[in-house]
Amino acid sequence: MGLSLETVGKHRFMVGISIATVWEFEATLDYFHVKETERMTYPYGKYFFRVINGTLVVFYSTSVRKVNGVGGNQYMLAHFPITKVLVVGTCAGIDKRFDVLDIIIPDRAVQYDCTVKEIEPLLKPSFVVPIDVTKYGIDGNATIGTADRAVVMWRDYLELQENGITVADTEAAAIAYICRKNEIECIIIKGISDFPTDETGLDPLQSNQEQINVYIANTPKVMTRIFDDYLQLFI
């Protein structure tokens, strides 16, 4: 059910749900049966409201990569009384202990493209954000790595694997970083949509397109699992 802006304005706090890609947001619109008239536009995309467990929730798209993710979230924090941000969506699998469609709730978020890796550690402490998930009854044992460069090439995958990264995306750790600056709790809920493939001996463009096709096919499945099984735990 849609909410009027007058009703929204009466709420003193709300939860923000940050969603990056077009396919993730479209799956969200479908899941919550969001009508066109309920969708509002802001500089980074669109947003809509729902009440879940008695709490007002604003779902907003940000578009991909770190600049859009941070910009969209900073905008929403400035315009609405958001007290917690949930970053939900898909990610690339890195740790082979997990499978496609597994849901990962990391207790550590790192930006791994912020160093001169030839002379510095890939995971620089100043860009590592710890996340307390134990208070929700979750054993923290996962690290999400974020960079503007998506994990497509096999050498990138091997490098992250060697550095203990569980899953990877292009915005979550940056959003967690900016939430910490704003003293806002941030929880990341990501589902593995695909694993990078060894493109050795293959056409890199064809290999990349095949990975994208797998991602697009699995995105609605991931979003449904998150909304069915995990969303209410954090609201």
Rank of each mutant, 00 (worst) to 15 (best):
P81C: 01
P81H: 03
K84D: 12
K84Q: 08
V85Y: 01
V87C: 01
V87M: 11
T90C: 13
G93T: 04
I94P: 13
I94S: 02
D95W: 03
D95E: 06
F98E: 12
D99G: 09
V100N: 12
V100I: 11
L101Y: 07
L101H: 13
D102Q: 05
I103R: 05
I105T: 03
P106D: 11
D107L: 02
D107Y: 01
A109G: 01
V110T: 09
V110M: 01
V110W: 01
Q111G: 09
C114L: 15
T115Y: 01
E118T: 11
E120A: 10
P121T: 03
L122S: 00
L123K: 01
K124Q: 14
P125K: 00
P125V: 00
F127G: 06
F127C: 04
F127S: 07
F127P: 05
F127H: 13
V128T: 15
I131L: 14
I131C: 08
I131N: 08
V133K: 14
V133E: 09
Y136M: 04
Y136S: 04
G137P: 03
I138Y: 08
D139S: 14
G140Y: 12
G140I: 09
G140A: 06
T143C: 07
T143K: 07
I144M: 05
G145K: 06
T146I: 04
A147K: 06
A147M: 05
D148K: 10
R149A: 15
R149S: 15
R149Q: 13
A150T: 05
V152M: 09
M153R: 15
R155N: 15
R155W: 10
R155H: 12
D156E: 14
Y157A: 02
L158Q: 13
E159A: 15
L160K: 10
L160S: 09
Q161E: 15
E162P: 11
G164D: 04
I165P: 06
I165V: 10
I165K: 07
T166F: 14
V167E: 13
V167Q: 05
D169H: 09
D169Y: 00
T170V: 06
T170S: 12
T170P: 04
A172K: 02
A174W: 03
I175L: 05
I175W: 00
A176F: 09
C179Y: 03
C179L: 06
C179T: 08
C179W: 10
R180L: 10
N182V: 04
N182G: 06
N182M: 14
I184P: 01
I184Y: 04
E185T: 05
C186N: 13
C186V: 02
I187R: 09
I187Q: 02
I187K: 02
I188M: 01
I189C: 10
I189N: 02
I189S: 03
G191D: 00
D194I: 05
D194S: 06
F195S: 07
T197W: 02
E199D: 03
E199A: 08
T200P: 00
T200C: 02
G201C: 11
G201Y: 01
L202Q: 13
D203S: 03
D203C: 05
P204E: 14
Q206G: 01
S207N: 15
S207E: 09
Q209H: 08
E210D: 13
E210I: 02
I212V: 15
I212A: 15
I212K: 04
V214E: 03
P220H: 06
P220D: 11
P220T: 02
P220S: 05
K221Y: 10
K221G: 13
M223Y: 03
M223G: 04
